[in-house]
């Protein structure tokens, strides 16, 4: 059986908010290491990879690997019924037809349980190579969100080019062009999460669909910083770390000159 108790139930809401616009169903894999999800969007252009490590839960028991296929839209509806301060317990049997969500209010004066039907999802599991990134950019997540929103107001595709001087985001649309350069500022007085840091072994540049990048920024409430990893001619990774718990990562295939 599987049973996991999470003290910060609000975290589950944030995780679901970060994926609900991209996927409609997914297999949550329960394993002794934690709860994970890998799923592609319907156009198979991007890949979501979530990990919630077992150590991040107050109580975690998983005897064997259990795939828990869930409709994300319905899951959002159920998790919305939890208060943001509630403690959430997720429970299911080894071959589950249903999964149970138990919500306990912080003061222990209200207990709710919801049972949701599982579904069989037959999706291909992709193999993400263990990559050394040519360029890694760490920046405030709110700034990245703003930047993607601004770029999407002008064009559909953004060219991201990273040099040791900084990261240049460029787009072109019917009304004109836009360029935003973010420079590394590691020596200032900023707190760590306010800094922009760039690590590169060689300059890298590629084009990406802004519609997807904008969807990824729905994960902004999960982390004060976001990390972009790039390798020439390979998908970009956009990573939001979840403190003491794991991550939400998005991989997006580049646009390639025909």
């Amino acid at each position: 059986m599987f049973e996991a108790r999470l003290l910060q139930g609000g975290l589950l809401k944030k995780v679901l908010d970060s994926i609900k616009d991209i996927i409609t169903e997914g297999n949550f894999d329960c394993s002794p290491n934690g709860l994970s999800l890998q799923a592609m969007d319907s156009s198979h252009v991007s890949l979501i990879d979530i990990l919630l490590e077992s150590e991040g839960f107050e109580h975690y028991r998983c005897d064997r690997n259990i795939p828990m296929g869930l409709n994300i839209t319905n899951l959002v509806k159920m998790i919305k019924c939890a208060g943001s301060e509630d403690i959430v317990t997720i429970k299911c049997e080894d071959k589950p037809d249903n999964v149970t969500f138990l919500f306990e209010s912080k003061d222990n004066d209200k207990i709710s349980d919801f049972e949701m039907k599982t579904m069989t999802i037959d999706d291909e599991h992709l193999l993400v190579p263990d990559q050394t990134y040519t360029a890694v950019v760490k920046m405030p997540s709110a700034e990245f969100q703003r930047l993607c929103r601004d770029m999407a107001a002008i064009g559909d595709t953004v060219n991201i080019s990273v040099t040791k001087e900084g990261v240049r985001f460029s787009t072109t649309g019917d009304m004109g062009t836009a360029n935003i350069t973010v420079r590394p500022n590691p020596s200032g007085d900023q707190k760590e999460e306010e800094r922009t840091e760039v690590q590169i072994t060689e300059p890298v540049s590629a084009g990406f669909a802004l519609r997807y990048l904008n969807s990824f920024t729905k994960a902004t409430p999960l982390s004060p910083t976001v990390t972009l990893g790039m390798v020439p001619n390979l998908p970009i990774v956009v990573e939001y770390k979840i403190a003491d718990m794991g991550h939400v990562r998005y991989y997006l295939a580049p646009k390639i000159e025909d």
Binding site: V45, H125, L127, A209
Partner: peptide
């Protein structure tokens, strides 16, 4: 024009 590749093109099944 720029062509959008699929993610499977890069990450073959595991």
């Amino acid at each position: 024009p720029m062509q959008q590749r699929s993610i499977e093109f890069f990450f073959r099944g595991g």
